[in-house]
Amino acid sequence: MSTISVTQHSRYQAKVARSRATSEPAWIRWVLIAIALAFLTLFLFIPLAAVFTEALRKGFDTYINALVDPDALSAIQLTLIAAAIALPLNLVFGVAAAWAIAKFDFKGKSILITLIDLPFAVSPVVAGLIYVLIFGLQGWFGEWLLDHDMKVIFAIPGIVLATVFVTFPFIARELIPLMQAQGKDEEEAALVLGASGWQILWRVTLPNIKWGLLYGMILTNARAMGEFGAVSVVSGHIRGMTNTMPLLVEILYNEYQYAAAFAVASLLALLALVTLALKTFVEWQAAKNAEETELAVMQS
């Protein structure tokens, strides 16, 4: 706690005391700002604007029709299902992993952290491929699944699995440094006061990490709804059944229905914007919370 307040204090001082010796001449400032803005415009704003322009090119009616098409609705539904299953799974995992890693010391911890990170660096295509190798008809369990009338690949379970894989590390990675920074004093205090493990988790730890948790969930959700490569390998592209929204974008794009493709894409882009807004809100709340605690500490 104390280190945070010190740095924040000095940052405040720095702002006041920033003299000419430690800042740049105005013209350099503006050139740097201009370059940064040009870079972001080129890579972020223009492509984003293109999505909405292309989507509305054939008018608002075409746009709406593209979104209420049965195939589109079923893709939206499947995307929501996949995200709704992947999110809680990775949430529970994230809290468990962060608890083990942040609150305890054990051998092989850094290897474990690297392994948790692995899905982030593995190509989505490889992620899809490995599930085909296991659950595909020619794979380890293919025959067995067929005999028992169960489908994984080319059905919802496969899509969910691929989604879980690509969003695997996000919540854990968000929580581990946060919980490490918070230490375990509060939990130990609760233990001394006679709280059970679940009570500590529920009443002490979770309230402390709620903003980080939310942040991780937002990232997980965004990535889950947008995954393309891994899901593409295991989907089978059956219309109205195993197409997610990003896959539908590709299909429409390949059917001369550019406006419709961009319409679905714009929905995903909108989702991305909502994600960014939520994320900013969470960051703001977290910062406010930190300030309040700090204030309380200073007053006491």
Binding site: L44, L247, A265, L276
Partner: peptide
């Protein structure tokens, strides 16, 4: 500042066609 994270949030297929 908020928009910097767009590539995290935007599905890759959308980024591709855009």
């Amino acid at each position: 500042d908020a928009f910097v994270d767009l590539p995290f949030a935007l599905p890759t297929a959308v980024a591709g066609i855009a």
